[in-house]
Design a protein around this nucleic acid. Structure first.
Lengths: 110, 110
DNA sequence: AAAGATTTATTCTATATTGTATAGATAATG
DNA sequence: CATTATCTATACAATATAGAATAAATCTTT
C-alpha cells in the first residue's frame, strides 16, 4: 500500500520541475519546463496523473490560486514539493549517482 | 511497438550496473552491484525481468558462458550494453541533468 | 446584464509499459 | 541423485501515456 520510497523516472523529472519553478508551478508550466529543458514531448494528462500520484504519496502538495487578470481561463492549481518529496528526490539522485560515479559513459559498445 | 527511447528508473540502474561490471555482468552480480552501491534491496526476479525487457528493446545483449570450475550451478547468462543502450542511457542522463542543473537540492520545503 | 464564444486549465477514462515478488525449472558438480 | 547456483515463468502492482471531455474564467455581442 505505501509504495516505494524513491521516485519513478517521470516522477523524478516532475519533482525537479516543481523545485525549479518554485511558486509558479502548475500543470501547464510544469509541462512547458520539461519540454523546454529536455526537448521531450509530454502529454498534459501524463503530467496531471503523475502530480496526483505524487500528492497521494505526500511528495507534493497543491492549492488553488486566485483567478489572474489575464484573458479568461480556469484558475490554476499550484504545486509544491514537501519535505518528504525533497527527501525522495535526494534518495533517488544519490542512488543514481552512486551507480554512475567513475563510469565513462562516452564509450560505445557493439 | 517501439516503446520509449529513454530508460525507466530501474532500467537505468540496471544498465549502469552492466556498464560497471563489464564482462562480469550476469543476473547475480548485477543484483549484488545494485544492492551494494544503493543499499536498496532488489529481488532477483525483478533483475531478470528487466534484463529481458532491455534485451527485447535492443538495449542489451546476452550470451551464455561456459561452465565454471565451481561446485554446481547452472551456466551464467552474461549481459552487455549495446550501442543503442549506451545512447539511451546518455539521453536519460542528459535529460535528468538538464532538469537538475542549477538547482539547490539541499533546501527543505514544508 | 445575459448568452454565447473563447481561452486557459484541469479531470476523466482507457490502455500500455515498467517494476516487483514468488515459485519452480534447469544445468552443472561431486 | 543430492546439492548448489542460476535462470525462467508467471502473476500482479505501480507507473507512464494519450487524448477527449469538462470546468471556470473572461470577452463580445446584443
Amino acid at each position: 500500500m505505501t509504495g516505494r520510497d524513491y521516485l519513478g523516472e517521470f516522477e523524478h523529472i516532475i519533482v525537479l520541475a516543481l523545485l525549479r519553478l518554485e511558486d509558479r508551478a502548475y500543470g501547464v508550466t510544469v509541462r512547458q519546463e520539461i519540454e523546454f529543458r529536455t526537448h521531450r514531448e509530454v502529454s498534459i494528462g501524463a503530467v496531471y496523473a503523475t502530480l496526483n500520484r505524487l500528492e497521494t504519496k505526500g511528495f507534493v502538495k497543491s492549492h488553488c490560486g486566485d483567478p489572474t487578470p489575464e484573458r479568461g481561463g480556469r484558475s490554476k492549481r499550484f504545486f509544491r514539493v514537501t519535505a518528504k518529496g525533497v527527501s525522495a528526490v535526494n534518495r533517488t539522485q544519490r542512488a543514481l549517482h552512486s551507480m554512475t560515479e567513475g563510469l565513462d559513459l562516452v564509450r560505445s559498445y557493439s
